[in-house]
Amino acid sequence: MSSLIGLTLRRKINTHKTKGGKRARRAEAARIERFVDWCNCPPEQIGRKHVHIFFEEKRFASTTQRDYFYAISKLWKMLGRSGEPPRPKDHNPG
């Protein structure tokens, strides 16, 4: 469990985990927490630049990129951000 995630965000993540497909929601919540841990700053300070660097550095397969994008999009909404986070560039063309 990430120590950078505050109580309010923790509640939102836990609520998200309890609805819908349990396995998928738990996996998405885990991706949110891994992303926040990777950023190493409070979620409120996470910005578009963090997302760009995360995807550039990790170079995930396209399906994993997609899954992380959806998780980061969920985090964006939980934080009350407008719009959506930057989409990952496809590092696996073909």
Rank of each mutant, 00 (worst) to 15 (best):
P42T: 02
C39I: 02
S73A: 03
W38F: 14
S2R: 09
A30D: 10
I53H: 10
V51L: 04
I32K: 09
E44P: 05
P88S: 04
G21V: 00
G83D: 09
P43L: 03
I46S: 05
P93M: 14
E84H: 15
S2G: 10
W76I: 05
L7I: 12
D67N: 11
P93F: 15
V36C: 07
F69L: 02
H16T: 00
K49W: 07
A27S: 12
Y70W: 13
H52E: 06
R25L: 00
S62F: 09
P86Q: 04
Q45L: 10
L75E: 03
G47K: 00
R34G: 03
P88F: 02
K89G: 00
G6E: 11
G47A: 05
V51T: 04
Q45T: 00
L79A: 08
S3Q: 10
E33D: 08
R31H: 10
M1L: 13
R31I: 07
H52Y: 12
S82M: 13
Y68F: 09
H16G: 02
T8V: 09
F60V: 13
F55A: 01
E28A: 03
M1D: 00
P88V: 01
I13Q: 04
M78G: 11
R31N: 02
G83Y: 15
N40Y: 13
R26Q: 08
K12L: 03
F55P: 00
T15H: 15
S2V: 12
I53R: 07
R66M: 05
Q65G: 07
A71M: 06
E56M: 14
K17C: 00
H50Q: 06
R25C: 04
F69K: 01
E57Y: 15
L9F: 13
I72K: 00
E84I: 15
K22P: 03
G94V: 14
P42S: 12
R81M: 05
S3Y: 13
L7V: 11
K19C: 03
H16N: 07
N92A: 11
K74M: 08
I5R: 02
S82T: 14
V36F: 08
W76G: 00
K89H: 11
A61W: 11
R48M: 02
I32T: 08
K17R: 13
E33A: 12
P93S: 08
T64G: 01
R31Q: 08
Q45F: 12
D67S: 07
R81I: 04
S62A: 14
P42M: 10
G94L: 15
K22D: 07
A24K: 05
E33Q: 10
Y68M: 01
L7N: 05
R11D: 06
N92D: 12
A71W: 04
D67R: 14
D37A: 13
E57G: 15
E44W: 14
T18E: 14
H52V: 01
A30Y: 10
E28G: 05
G20H: 05
V51Q: 02
R25K: 06
G20D: 11
I72F: 06
F55N: 00
D67Y: 11
L75M: 08
R34F: 08
I53V: 11
T18M: 15
S62G: 14
P43D: 06
P43C: 08
K77S: 06
T63H: 07
A27L: 09
T8L: 11
G94T: 09
L79E: 10
K12C: 01
A61F: 09
I72A: 00
F69I: 01
T15F: 13
K17W: 07
F60G: 07
K12G: 05
A30M: 08
